[in-house]
Design a protein around this nucleic acid. Sequence first.
DNA 1: GAATCGATCCTAGCACCGCTAGACAATCGA
DNA 2: TCGATTGTCTAGCGGTGCTAGGATCGATTC
Lengths: 192, 192
Amino acid sequence: MSVQERKQRERAERERLIVATARELAEQQGWDAVTTRRLAERIEYSQPVLYSHFRGKREIIGAVALQGATELATAVRAATSAADGPRARVAALARAYLDFAARNPAVYDALFQLDGGLAYAQEDTPEPLKDAFAALLETLDEVAGDGVHPGLFTEVFWAALHGLATLSRAGRLLPEDADPRVELLVDRLAIL
Amino acid sequence: MSVQERKQRERAERERLIVATARELAEQQGWDAVTTRRLAERIEYSQPVLYSHFRGKREIIGAVALQGATELATAVRAATSAADGPRARVAALARAYLDFAARNPAVYDALFQLDGGLAYAQEDTPEPLKDAFAALLETLDEVAGDGVHPGLFTEVFWAALHGLATLSRAGRLLPEDADPRVELLVDRLAIL
DNA sequence: GAATCGATCCTAGCACCGCTAGACAATCGA
DNA sequence: TCGATTGTCTAGCGGTGCTAGGATCGATTC
């Protein structure tokens, strides 16, 4: 029994190594550089080993995405819980979100830009994704305004943040005015 | 001289054919299906012919993007000019933008999701891109609010629309509440 | 302790990708 | 009519994601 447990442990450890390496490589050189060959070489196993853990590259991206969702939720909750008052909380949320996207571009891509084979806004949506949305909802709930469904409000606010994040990163928006853009967004969307 | 002109005409015609075929194929089966081999086969020329018109696949995507930018600008202007009053104009703009993204997903991807090798928010940004932004600015200018730079306001509004467009299309948002989301966005962001 | 047998991993290769060198044919100017 | 130029194609390079099948290793059994 103990032998089997050790094997399972080692297997789980290797799976973590794969995901961590994929993430690292993606952050260093972009997802295009994350090929199954390079990934295999970095973990010092052959290519087919990857396929004994994941169905394919897509699932590896998905695994990185789930990791990212958990971290994003944590980052948002940490930022909002440290702020006083609704206005400050919403602003902190927005900054934390955009900061996460800027600091972890590859992870953000895995979450929202690439196809990680994950289900969204559905029954079988993985828990980390639901929880990340919940983290946004917790703070945005109180500023949705009367008669506005908090979920709907959160979706719109989230979409705005997502737009800012992606357009900024793609060079569609100049980075200089990032702060006033956030201020404008918070002041207009949130009802205090 | 006339012979040369005919050749130039034919060459330009073939270039249009390449772009149109790439766009068609992308809309039908997604950009992943747009390979240089398939594209060459569809236009009934060999692969290298593509490279006598474009530096590579990226430039073909860029060409589709520029076409899309022109059409997006036209669609937005048509919608806003048909609306009465600032509120109606902004709402029409938002709907026209999201409608364009939903009806031409591949073109929208070429514009904002994929790398078409185009410069944005810079000196050498191609005219169609500048004009598409200008089309948004024309209408949003009047609802930016006092003391808010219209360009900055347009960027934020655009980012919100872009977020809604991409998250909707990726299945991150359920399509049912599309209308109320737009209403909320317009009511909150625009100062009437 | 040796033999067996199953799990595990790797080598090799598939079909496809973007892109290009070099052979070939068609057309043009002299 | 002939040479030069232009245009196009065939063939192939190195890369991709993914997989079949053989080899090897280690736990189990006698």
